[in-house]
Nucleic acid binder design. Structure first.
Lengths: 191, 191
DNA sequence: AACTATAGGGAACGATCATTCTCAAAGCAA
DNA sequence: TTGCTTTGAGAATGATCGTTCCCTATAGTT
């Protein structure tokens, strides 16, 4: 295993543990055990637990952004692209390991203690808002639509996490259809 | 101060501390200092920190439920009652102390460790869903509307907490108006 | 006034945390 | 083989946590 692979492996394992049980609930000793590296090597790869947390969040952001963009790219027209967001959520919520948005969880757990985590959470959510805003603009919709659609997505994430059901994704999608159709002129060629 | 007043005072102070900084970040020694009671008396009033956490959440639930019901009761017709929910959120978000939904925060911090906290969070959110469902039923609306409106409210809470803005309440309200008008027949006497 | 029960105040306990240190084993150059 | 550097594995450190315990001082009763 090259140092680069070890680095990536630590981040993957830490992500799983932090996401399953919370950041504070996972100690460095346990992480060390799960990655099967000496504590010394762990601290050679990362200067602190906080650095691992940041790396985990950054990776989550990249995976989320890429995954949602993939779904958007696969959709045919602007309306379908917007709705594809909720299909992505639906698949995500159905995963056994789903336990809510890692950023919201981290923010609730440590946001008030760590300005860095709060800022990363803000950045992550703003980036999602920007994606929606661009899609709404491409669709020629009311700019107010984008934050509305974001609220549905955020609400679906917390509600799915708390209820343990994937249903909120479908509810959000239905609501999104209504909001879209009310605030976007019919797509060209579909009237 | 009677024992009952002490009891209530501890819960109020603990609520403020837990909400501001997170549950795990507040130690019993600090709580003791803030309530100005000997540790011994604290443990005479509550058997454990966990018991204080539960009491805090239960009080939050009662206050939230009463506050939102008050707004609903003050509204004229079913449509206005549904929208009153978002006005309540707007006022809440504008408070300096606002830091998101205490249940969502507690769930993110300890939900995976403590089934009791997870269950209280579920119960709290289900009760909100029931309130909306009844209002939608009274308004003769599509039953699917209630969970949609709940998603907007939940999304607004997390988005307001993360962004530090009260704007999400207004965005949620506007979206709610569209969803309501699309899924409820016009109120009698207003056509 | 003397004895008893209670309550205050905080030290002590045992556990756990992130981080650092020790030290022996192993790899490697000569 | 000998000496040197790097590594593995986990014990030590110092801090903090929730909870319990001890001791003193006070209040109440006769």
């Amino acid at each position: 295993m090259t140092p680069g692979e070890e680095h990536a492996h630590v981040i993957e394992v830490a992500d799983r543990l932090f996401y399953e049980r919370g950041i504070q609930a996972v100690g460095m000793a346990e992480l060390r055990r799960e990655v099967d590296l000496p504590l010394k090597k762990l601290y050679a790869l990362f200067p602190s637990k906080q650095a691992i947390v940041f790396a985990v969040l950054d990776r989550r952001h990249r995976i989320w952004t890429a995954g949602i963009q993939e779904r958007i790219d696969a959709a045919a027209d602007p309306r379908q692209k917007l709705l594809a967001v909720y299909d992505y959520l639906s698949d995500w919520f159905a995963e056994d390991s789903f336990r809510g948005c890692a950023f919201i969880n981290a923010f609730g757990e440590l946001g008030s203690q760590s300005p860095d985590i709060a800022e990363r959470t803000r950045t992550h959510k703003e980036s999602f808002q920007r994606v929606l805003a661009e899609l709404v603009a491409e669709a020629g919709g009311n700019p107010a639509l984008a934050p509305q659609l974001a609220l549905l997505a955020e609400g679906a994430q917390t509600t799915a996490a708390i209820s343990g059901s994937a249903e909120p994704a479908r509810q959000a999608r239905q609501a999104a259809e209504i909001l879209i159709d009310a605030q976007i002129q019919a797509a060209p060629g579909l009237a």
